[in-house]
Design a protein around this nucleic acid. Structure first.
Length: 863
RNA sequence: GCCUGGGUGGCGGAAUAGGUAGACGCAAGGGACUUAAAAUCCCUUGGGGCUGAGUCCCCGUACGAGUUCGAUUCUCGUCCCAGGCACCA
């Protein structure tokens, strides 16, 4: 056995061994219980970062643990390989997105292998490969067929310079994140998925996901944003048309004195055209659509609007209401029109005051009325109906239900439900994405590509254009095609590609049969493996990715391809990896290696000035508070890196990086190594003791019991809550005890108990530090890989202590401790407590009121 | 503004069917080994008090009340921090 623990040698040796033996390759075995463990697959940015290391370490521990518990564990890895960074990098480095992506994948795969993760690499997939996106295109066609995918014209964030749509998160302070030019709203034809059809079901099932953090389901519920109310139609004066409105306050309809339309609302132009208001309205709309839409910007906007020149009629009281267009009315919520009730909505009140519009109080407090002229705040509480015709005197909460009924009788409204969730727009004017398999024909319109012509392959021999514009529309050989329906050859292909969230919405199914080419997946394999038993990833995907995946699963179920509705039974969202920032007054943020710690202060290596230590923040390139996993691998090896990630904090919490903490992890492994060095010669020639503790005495008996207690503690910590930090702490305690226990190595029985304890340490640590554990396992003389070993069992009869510490309180204050045999009776405990010397000082001369005895725990004497 | 979490030593964090607050680790201090250093091992370490330095006393889990024999844990109120949503009709 090597004197020193040498991680580099050990780790590459065992990684080669695992690969050679194919120990992580799995297939369906119907008579074995499966466990599907999935971590969110990475975007191949080029290098793994600490967030990946943490995420995948957590997952790997669970996978290895479950394997030891006898499950058939599916643990795959792949690449979320389409997306904008590839295009940007390709332009910056004069290479091609495909080239850049595949190179990155190769580099990152190597890094993941060096971490020792137990993936079935035979199942690796990359979403940018035609074999993958072909089935996405196939599903898209199915969805078009069933009207689950459709095309409509809508407003999007548009950057003129980059010639593309930007997602909301790509708009920073109203400017394009890439070129810094202002973003504006542009009307575009886009493809959408009808996720709103499933809004109610997605919402309902939020409460049926007991394995998900409540935080995530709450966020999803808020995102779906269900609200109950009514749809009310306001007839337009001098027209047969009506303006439909959604409101949560149908009880206040009698107080609606004007109407506000979103600037993009189609009626805005229609109503104002030909009136004196046409010009000002057009100018207003133009200006508002150019405005930034970020939350900060929006907050600073004053409520403003312009009269359209038209009126509509309040369907309950027949009053004329001027129709405005206003900046606060949102086209994307409800119907894009707001019935404004200034007496009972603060925003409407502000607007009414500003433009001198009528204010009518229709709900009053029980004990009085309100004066519209002087009221300072809108009255939003429930109350008594007033100035509401037949509803006067009614409780407003009841009127909320009665008024929609009355409206329904007139055919001018009904109770309804509204969702904030919008249909999922999937068109991207990007190159590096899956082509949308549709064709535009001048005669037949928009026509789907024939299924037999799939995949529509993204051409890879293209030159990227400066500015990031997609080259696809300029590629004649791609764009020009025959119409699949009429055959005319002047049809044009759709040149938009799909949102990359589409690929990540079904990759977990594809992993079940990644090479299947007869369909989207082998349903038998999917039936066996799905749903994912445990999904692990960052909370940043709490809404979009997870909601889209849940939606897609419902789509697959509609097509009869899968039998379940929810793809992820349990979800763990791990916290961020954080570190303090270092800032030099001259050189700005410093990388950890650009500073030197001297006299307890950090100094900039370039100018030698003291660097300011900032607060602990999420590791990010811009703040330079990053640790490169490669450096850790070189300096400490994979096992220490893994150990620290798990020990420093429970997985769901943020992890604060600490160099000394890593050192501590390395020190612990060295300590275990030396322990084996001490015992190996004697212990490797005897079998582990696994009998009853009754055959043991003294320290050895205690050690045996501690070993079993540790097994129970570690098993529970992993099984119930994934609290690896406390599990590792428990093993540390056992190791400390092994050091403290004098084992007579000449005597066989103590040797066998020591071997049992040492083996247990290795088995319990093996999911965390697999290479280290394999090496020591072999040193103990075990011929087979640790991967084939079972998780240790604990004996019930070895759990209880022989002696129990019982504490004695007087009036709830701790006064004494005493050690008693575990089987002491309640009376004996009481007796001993009352006669305790220190206790007597506190009860002497006082009335004994009560004595509470909690067996094996404490005595509380009340005087 | 609304919705979630969360406030425990110098630090990361333990302990909640209410029952010894501070496991384990880091840092710090002291000691052993060494010519020396590193490594290692051992001890101390929440704050304060003391006529009897003890199997001693008081205080202490953001703050203030309450329930209880007993509250870090349960209830109510307040403050602070983090995350999410937000002109949502």
């Amino acid at each position: 056995m090597q004197e020193r623990y040498d991680p580099q040698a050990i780790e590459s040796k065992w990684q080669r061994y695992w690969e050679r033996e194919g120990l992580f390759r799995v297939k369906e075995e119907p008579d074995r219980e499966k466990y599907y463990l999935l971590e969110m697959f990475p975007y191949p940015s080029g290098k793994i970062h600490m967030g990946h290391v943490r995420n995948y370490t957590i997952g790997d521990v669970v996978a290895r643990y479950k394997r030891m518990r006898g499950y058939n564990v599916l643990h795959p890895m792949g690449w979320d390989a389409f997306g904008m960074p590839a295009e940007n990098a390709a332009i910056a480095n004069r290479t091609h997105p495909a080239r850049w992506t595949y190179d990155n994948i190769a580099a990152m795969r190597e890094q993941l292998k060096r971490m020792g993760f137990s993936y079935d690499w035979d199942r690796e997939l990359a979403t940018c490969r035609p074999e993958y996106y072909r089935w996405e295109q196939w599903l898209f066609l199915k969805m078009v067929e069933k009207d689950m995918a459709y095309r409509k014209e809508s407003y999007v964030n548009w950057c003129e310079d980059c010639q593309t749509v930007l997602a909301n998160e790509q708009v920073e302070a109203g400017l394009c994140w890439r070129c810094g030019r202002p973003v504006r709203q542009k009307k575009l034809w886009q493809w959408f998925f009808r996720i709103t059809d499933d809004a109610e079901d997605l919402l309902q099932w939020c409460d049926r996901l007991p394995g998900w953090p409540e935080k995530v389901t709450t966020m999803q519920k808020n995102w779906i944003g269900k609200s109950l109310g009514a749809r009310i139609h306001f007839p337009i004066e001098g027209s047969d048309e009506t303006i439909p409105v959604f409101t949560t306050r149908p009880d206040t309809v009698f107080g609606a004195t004007f109407m506000c339309l979103a600037p993009e609302h189609p009626l805005v132009a229609a109503l104002s055209s030909g009136t004196a208001q046409q010009e000002p309205v057009a100018a207003f709309v133009e200006r508002i659509l150019q405005q930034e839409r970020t939350s900060q910007a929006v907050e600073s906007y004053e409520k403003e609007g312009v009269f359209t020149g038209a009126y509509c009629i309040n369907p309950m009281n027949g009053l004329r209401m001027p129709v405005y267009t206003a900046n606060f009315a949102l086209m994307e919520y409800g119907t894009g029109a707001v019935m404004s009730v200034p007496a009972h909505d603060q925003r409407d009140l502000d607007f009414a005051r500003k433009y001198g519009l009528d204010i009518v109080v229709v709900v009053r407090p029980e004990d009085g009325d309100l004066d519209p002229a002087t009221m300072e705040e809108a009255y939003v509480e429930p109350g008594v109906m007033t100035r509401s015709g037949a509803f006067d005197g009614m409780d407003s909460r009841r009127a909320k239900e009665e008024i929609p009924k009355a409206l329904a009788e007139k055919g001018l409204g009904e109770a309804t439900v509204n969702y904030r969730l919008r249909d999922w727009g999937i068109s991207r004017q990007r190159y590096w994405g899956a082509p949308i398999p549709m064709v535009h024909c001048s005669r037949c319109g928009v026509v789907p590509v024939r299924e037999s012509d799939l995949p529509v392959i993204l051409p890879e021999d293209v030159d990227m254009l400066e500015g990031g514009r997609t080259p696809l529309p300029t590629l004649d050989e791609f764009v020009r095609t025959a119409c699949p329906r009429c055959g005319t050859d002047d049809a044009r292909r759709e040149t938009d590609t799909m949102d990359t969230f589409v690929e990540s919405s079904w990759y977990f199914e594809r992993y079940c049969s990644p090479r299947w080419n007869e369909g989207i997946f082998d349903t038998e394999a999917v039936d066996y493996w799905m749903p994912v038993d445990q999904y692990i990833g960052g909370v940043e995907h709490a809404i979009l990715h997870l909601l889209y995946s849940r939606y897609f699963t419902r789509v697959l179920k509609d097509f009869g391809l899968v039998s379940y509705k929810e793809p992820f039974t349990r979800l763990l969202t791990q916290g961020m990896v954080c570190k303090e920032t270092l800032k030099c007054p001259e050189h700005g943020f410093l990388l950890p290696e650009e500073a030197e710690i001297r006299d307890g202060r950090a100094h900039c290596l370039r100018c030698d000035r003291p660097a300011e230590v900032g607060r602990v923040e999420k590791m990010s390139k811009s703040k330079k508070n990053v640790i490169d996993p490669n450096i850790l691998l070189e300096r400490y090896g994979a096992d220490t890196t893994r150990l620290f990630c798990l020990f420093a904090a429970p997985p769901e919490r943020d992890l604060e990086w600490s160099e000394q903490g890593v050192e501590g992890g390395a020190r612990f492994l060295n300590r275990v190594w030396r322990l084996f060095l001490q015992h190996r010669d004697r212990v490797s020639s005897v079998p582990a003791f696994d009998g009853s503790p009754d055959d043991l005495t003294g320290d050895v008996r205690d050690l045996y019991k501690k070993t079993h207690q540790t097994i129970r503690k570690v098993t529970r910590d992993i099984e119930e809550r994934f609290h690896f930090n406390t599990a590792i702490a428990a093993v540390m305690e056992l190791v400390n005890m092994l050091y403290a226990t004098e084992v007579d190595l000449q005597d066989e029985l103590p040797c066998r108990v020591a071997r049992h304890a040492l083996e247990t340490v290795i088995l319990l640590l093996s999911p965390v530090v697999p290479h280290f554990a394999e090496e020591l396992w072999a040193e103990l003389g075990n011929p087979e890989s640790l991967l084939l070993a079972a998780w240790p069992h604990y004996r019930e009869d070895a759990l209880e202590q022989d002696e129990i510490l019982v504490v004695v309180q007087v009036n709830g204050k701790l006064r004494s401790r005493m050690t008693l045999p575990a089987d002491a009776s309640e009376d004996a405990i009481r007796e001993k407590a009352l006669s305790d010397e220190n206790v007597r000082r506190f009860i002497e001369g006082k009335d004994l009121r009560r004595v509470i005895v909690v067996k094996n725990k404490l005595v509380n004497i009340v005087v």
